[in-house]
Amino acid sequence: MAMAISDQLNALGIQIPPVPAALAAYIPSKRSGNLIFTSGQLPLVAGKLRKTGKVGGGITLDEAKQEARQCLLNGLSTLLLHIDSLDQIKSIVKLGVYVASTENFTEQHLVANGASELVAEIFGEKGKHARFAIGVTSLPLNACVELEMTVEVE
């Protein structure tokens, strides 16, 4: 039997943060049948961004990957508005990653790997997902990364 997700999170030294407050007229996530769609999650920690700016400018690839990981954790927190436990996740279906980057930065896919690699560490086989990673000129609050996810649950 696979390890419980809570045990896996503990083994990785990861805590799921509280659900970040919505910054505009939307809800953090919405369930439709067995799918949950998250709103775009910024890398907020205790309601604040640790880094602002563009990847390829003041933010390095490694820093942006860490921010993508935080976006993912924030996204997971919003799932718990609809399910009792992350063990109810059957599949991480898709991640969408937006990267605020300079015109010459072309490694958005590597920024997104920060989130994709964390999903694999937490969920194993259930974490295999489709994904897009695109560069944008700006994101809310001058964040460098925003992530949305679609998840199938029991």
Rank of each mutant, 00 (worst) to 15 (best):
N10T: 14
S116V: 07
Q108A: 11
G40K: 08
F123D: 06
G75N: 04
L72T: 02
C71L: 01
G135M: 06
D87A: 04
L44E: 11
V99M: 00
G96T: 04
K65M: 13
F37W: 13
Q70C: 04
A120D: 10
A22S: 15
E103H: 00
C144H: 01
E148A: 13
V151W: 08
P17V: 05
A2M: 12
F105E: 02
S29E: 10
E125K: 08
F132D: 09
G135F: 04
P17C: 06
C71V: 01
G47N: 12
R50Q: 15
V111R: 02
A115F: 02
E63N: 08
L44A: 09
L81V: 08
A64Y: 01
M1H: 09
E154A: 14
N104P: 00
M1Y: 07
I89R: 02
G47V: 10
P17W: 02
E107V: 01
E121N: 15
I89M: 09
G33N: 11
V153E: 12
E125I: 11
K65C: 08
K51H: 12
S116N: 07
D84N: 13
F132W: 03
V45I: 14
Q108S: 10
G13Y: 07
P20F: 05
A112P: 04
I27Q: 15
V55H: 03
S6R: 12
S101M: 13
P18V: 10
D84K: 14
I16T: 03
S138A: 15
A22L: 13
I14N: 06
G135R: 03
P43K: 09
S32Q: 14
V93W: 11
K90L: 15
V99A: 00
L9Q: 05
G127R: 03
K128W: 05
L86I: 02
S6V: 05
G96N: 09
